[in-house]
């Protein structure tokens, strides 16, 4: 009979199995520990990144909110301002209409004839000639006619024009025209008058 293999005995077998189990257990535990350490490390590494992401999301959100706030406030401001402008313009127009009515119904006696003379004088100076034809409205025709004696060469046109008052002067050759009606003078000064009226409403002070 030959000699028995060492594993043939139970105790040797058990001891070997124990050894293998122990080694395996150690390997598994080491592997778990290493996995745990890695996970812990990953978690630690992720925290600043997450904090960064969190801060970025909050900051982007804040930016977006600021942007929307600006949009809403800006657009509301513009709308309110536009409505205010329209209301002001309406009020200024009302004042203008009333003032023009008053001018149209001004009493033609007294200083008005002096005004007409001044207007004719101004026009002849600007045109550089008294060889002119003057047009005016039906109301002022007589006043203009009586003022013409002081301007040799000037004549009154038979046609009347639509205006609040004043005169429109044309050189006799028809090459030059000068509009010195009250309407034209008001039109030229309108931006300044609007400013004065608006100031009365407390705008632009």
């Amino acid at each position: 009979m030959g000699q028995l293999h060492p594993l043939a005995s139970n105790s040797a077998l058990e001891s070997t199995i124990d050894k293998i189990l122990k080694n395996t257990e150690q390997d598994i535990l080491a592997s778990i520990k290493s996995g745990l350490d890695d996970s812990q490390q990953n978690l630690d590494d992720a925290i600043p990144k997450l904090e960064g992401e969190y801060d970025k999301i909050i900051s982007d959100g804040k930016k977006e909110a600021d942007k929307i706030e600006k949009q809403i406030i800006g657009s509301a401001d513009i709308q309110a301002r536009n409505q205010q402008l329209m209301a002001l313009e309406e009020a200024v127009d009302k004042v203008f209409t009333k003032a023009l009515d008053q001018i149209a119904n001004t009493d033609r006696s007294g200083d008005y004839s002096n005004l007409i003379k001044t207007l004719i004088e101004e026009a002849t100076q600007i045109l550089g000639t008294t060889e002119i034809s003057i047009s005016t409205n039906a109301k002022d025709k007589d006043i203009v006619q009586s003022a013409l004696s002081q301007f040799s060469g000037a004549e009154l046109s038979s046609e009347t024009i639509e205006c609040l008052g004043g005169i429109k002067v044309k050189s006799k050759d028809g090459a030059m025209t000068f509009d010195n009606t009250i309407d034209a003078r008001i039109e030229r000064l309108k931006p300044l008058i609007r400013k004065d009226i608006a100031a009365k409403f407390g705008v632009g002070n």
């Binding site: 030059m176 025209t177 000068f178 030229r188 000064l189």
Partner: peptide
């Protein structure tokens, strides 16, 4: 800005 206008040619 004045009330006087210009000449039209």
């Amino acid at each position: 800005m004045t009330a006087e206008g210009g000449v039209q040619y």
